[in-house]
Design a protein around this nucleic acid. Structure first.
Length: 218
DNA sequence: ATCCGGAAGA
DNA sequence: TCTTCCGGAT
């Protein structure tokens, strides 16, 4: 995948705080829409923990609208920055916290689930945690890494044990899976364009036929 | 017109 | 386990 897609230079953010905001905004959302929302926050000068903590939730919702679920994400963002300030005083102090305990702390914040927590740990704190998303599950199931669905933690540890604890490696792999999942290994796979089909169980079984398994061709 | 996707709550 | 929250992609 690396050979085909090239380095992804993730996470595309200028500051750790921007990573944190992006991690929340990207929940159930394509990254390109998150970019719009982040840019709007920048324009408004709100990409700052202090300002974000003060802003009216309804106003915040209006600004981040392009990322979807504006009401939900506005309150999640505020809950997170509020909790960071309350428990650590600053984003920097938060991210320096011992990784395993930081993970547990993140999961205790309302609106932060395992994938969001691991994205923050990996891309903002530089800790060796692998975020397991929908693309990862789908790819692993099809490719044959997994023969049946497994719980989040199991998949995360599988990857962390296979790739080792280098955050750069874990981060690159996750980014490549996203690129691959969006472009090729979609819900309806484009196996004809797949750079890794040679090793893929789904393709080998002949299920991965190109055009369609029914009607309608794009 | 349908599909897509994290987290929470029922 | 199913539904809700949403805008944007297809």
């Amino acid at each position: 995948m690396l050979a085909h897609y090239g380095p992804q230079h993730w996470w595309p953010a200028e500051t750790p705080f921007e990573v944190i905001v992006g991690a929340v905004l990207t929940q159930a959302t394509a990254w390109r829409n998150v970019e719009r929302a982040i840019n709007r926050l920048k324009q408004a000068g709100l990409l700052d923990p202090e300002r974000l903590a003060d802003i009216e939730p309804a106003v915040l919702a209006g600004i981040i609208r392009p990322a979807g679920y504006p009401q939900v994400k506005a309150s999640r963002l505020r809950a997170l920055v509020g909790a960071i300030r309350r428990d650590f005083g600053s984003v920097e102090a938060c991210l320096r916290f011992e990784p395993a305990r930081l993970r547990a702390w993140l999961l205790s914040v309302p609106g932060i689930g395992p994938e969001t927590a691991d994205s923050i740990l990996l891309y903002a704190a530089g800790r060796p945690y692998f975020p397991v998303d929908a693309y990862t599950r789908r790819l692993f199931l099809r490719y044959g890494v997994l023969s049946a669905p497994r719980p989040y933690e199991g998949i995360r540890r599988l990857v962390e044990e296979a790739l080792g604890p280098d955050p750069a490696v874990l981060g690159e792999f996750h980014a490549l899976i996203v690129a691959h999942g969006k472009a090729v290994c979609r819900k309806r796979p484009r196996c004809g364009a797949c750079p890794v089909r040679a090793g893929c169980k789904f393709w080998a079984e002949g299920v991965g036929f190109e055009p369609t398994m029914g009607l309608s061709t794009p």
